[in-house]
């Protein structure tokens, strides 16, 4: 900064002071008041703008929506795992994306219906059920699982992922989720 400029400022400041200190201090008090008023109105106005901007972050995650697999009656005969397709709907802002995902309906040790994700916890291939061998085999790296999805052998770090399911109005419904691959414990992605 130029040194002579500063001297110049202070000299004019003194000149102004001589002209009337009280009047100008009243003026700067008013300036303060007006700026404060304008700032608070501005802050008030920015509330809806901020809410608008942050909507996609603040909005509660889409609640678990239950997807129908089929009626319990039809599934009553299930002894070994069967593949079923569920329509999964994802919201992306103003769009919705519908896709079909494969799940296996199986019976757990207590004889209840259960649902397994067909996505391999190793690298994400689709696991196939082999009736003749009575086990799940992943076609990619030969990961093997029992009829309940427990890990038998191969590179996968954990067993097949159980999906939340329940019976509603005589229908088996599932909450479709995807899980992180290559980790020993099941972790939800979406």
């Amino acid at each position: 900064m130029n040194h002579s400029d500063e001297i110049h400022i202070s000299s004019t400041a003194e000149e102004y002071k001589k002209l009337g200190g009280t009047a100008s201090s009243r003026r700067s008090f008013l300036a303060l008041l007006l700026s404060a008023g304008a700032a608070s109105v501005g802050a008030l106005l920015s509330v809806p703008l901020l809410r608008f901007l942050l909507h996609p972050l603040v909005k509660a995650k889409t609640q678990a929506s239950w997807k129908e697999i089929g009626s319990v009656e039809d599934l009553a005969s299930v002894t070994s795992p069967v593949k079923k397709l569920v329509k999964v709907e994802q919201r992306d802002g103003w769009r919705k994306i519908v896709s079909e995902k494969a799940v296996y309906v199986c019976r757990d040790a207590n004889g209840h219906l259960c649902t397994l994700s067909s996505v391999c916890p190793h690298l994400g291939c689709s696991i196939a059920w082999h009736d003749d061998k009575n086990k799940f085999i992943c076609p990619c790296h030969n990961g093997q699982f029992t009829a309940e999805g427990k890990l038998l052998g191969g590179p996968p770090p954990r067993g097949m992922d159980r999906l939340e399911s329940k019976v509603e109005d005589g229908k088996l419904v599932v909450h479709y989720q995807t899980f992180k691959q290559l980790v020993p414990n099941k972790e939800v992605i979406a």
Binding site: K83, K101, C125, C138
Partner: peptide, 19 residues
Amino acid sequence: FEEEGCIECHGADLSGTPS
């Protein structure tokens, strides 16, 4: 397509898998 196991590698929604 589903019965022959194509779905296992090419994906249930045909969008492919790592394999």
